[in-house]
Simulated scan of single mutants.
Amino acid sequence: MPMTLNVLQKTRIGMTVNNFRKAASKDELVVLSKTLIKSWKKLLSNDTTPSKPEKKDKEKASSSPDQADSPSESMEAKDSQSTEGRKLMRQDSAASITNDPVRIKCRELIASSLQLDEDSNIPNAQCPIELGAKIEDSIFLEFKNTDQKYKARVRSRVANLKDKKNPKLKEGVIMGLIPPERIANMSAEEMASDEMRKLRAKFTKESIDDHQMARQEGTTTDLFKCGKCGKKNCTYNQLQTRSSDEPMTTFVFCLECGNRWKFC
């Protein structure tokens, strides 16, 4: 039904839905409740923002000792202030609503990968359910569907967040140091731990060195034609791989395409 500020104030439906959110056990119901409450907060903030003349009138009324607010009015003012405070602290915190079972399952997987151990003591830890919904929402906004690329992106987030050898990644997301939009688009190298980055850098350097050695070894010649690229920019080596009375085996390497072959 269309919601107005008058209905919110008379029915107090916001408090009812908020209590339901706290008691709900299903992640989908929690996300839907939070999104609904956030949309109602926007109505409250828009309708309760006074214009300049109204502000002056309120200041005059507050300065007058004969005009005191009733208990109900003061309670509503406190609720409005607390609502505004929470709104400022949690801007754009709620993800979009979805009934897609694939998206809901992916949100649950990401949320489970963000769950902390019982002995973990991380300050300012955010709700894993909210973070999971926001991370999934950012991934879905990029792909616009739930195809294989979307699922692969979700699986890579879950795997890296669950990696016990890389706890800093999960801690950074839980503490808000890594925003949901950032973790949703990080590459495997960016999510990797410092130890893994050093290991990958070592393997990369070894591969480069091996490639350079392969290109430098051997005698350069144009006597051989590569059967793959058709060029004659090659190097060759000769080794005795058979008995001493047999001719040597010639190993040829193409410097253009990397093709290798041998002549016996």
Score class of each variant (00 low, 15 high):
Pro2Lys: 15
Pro2Cys: 14
Leu5Thr: 09
Leu5Gln: 11
Gln9Ala: 14
Lys10Gln: 08
Arg12Glu: 06
Met15His: 14
Val17His: 07
Phe20Cys: 02
Arg21Ile: 00
Ala23Lys: 03
Ser25Pro: 01
Leu32Cys: 08
Leu32Trp: 09
Trp40Thr: 00
Lys42Gly: 13
Asp47Gly: 15
Pro50Thr: 06
Asp57Tyr: 14
Glu59Leu: 10
Glu59Gln: 12
Ser62Tyr: 05
Ser62Arg: 08
Asp66Arg: 09
Gln67His: 14
Ala68Gly: 10
Ser74Gln: 13
Asp79Tyr: 12
Ser80Arg: 03
Ser82Asp: 13
Thr83Asn: 00
Arg86Ser: 11
Lys87Asp: 00
Leu88Lys: 08
Asp92Ile: 04
Ser96Met: 07
Ser96Glu: 05
Arg103Tyr: 05
Ser112Ala: 12
Asp117Arg: 06
Ser120Arg: 01
Ala125Glu: 02
Ala125Trp: 03
Cys127Ala: 08
Pro128Trp: 00
Pro128Tyr: 01
Glu130Gln: 09
Glu130His: 06
Leu131Val: 06
Gly132Cys: 11
Ile139Asn: 01
Ile139Tyr: 00
Leu141Trp: 07
Asn145Gly: 15
Asp147Val: 10
Gln148Ile: 08
Ala159Cys: 11
Ala159Asn: 12
Lys162Arg: 12
Asn166His: 04
Pro167Leu: 03
Lys168Pro: 06
Glu171Val: 00
Gly172Pro: 00
Ile174Tyr: 00
Leu177Pro: 01
Ile178Lys: 12
Ile178Pro: 04
Arg182Trp: 05
Ala184Ile: 04
Met186Phe: 05
Ser187Leu: 05
Lys198Gln: 02
Leu199Glu: 14
Phe203Gly: 13
Glu206Gln: 15
Ile208Glu: 04
Asp210Gln: 09
Met213Ser: 11
Met213His: 10
Ala214Val: 10
Thr219Lys: 04
Thr220Ala: 15
Phe224Cys: 03
Cys226Pro: 01
Thr235Tyr: 05
Leu239His: 12
Leu239Asn: 09
Thr241Pro: 06
Ser243Gln: 10
Asp245Thr: 06
Pro247Arg: 15
Met248Lys: 09
Leu255Thr: 02
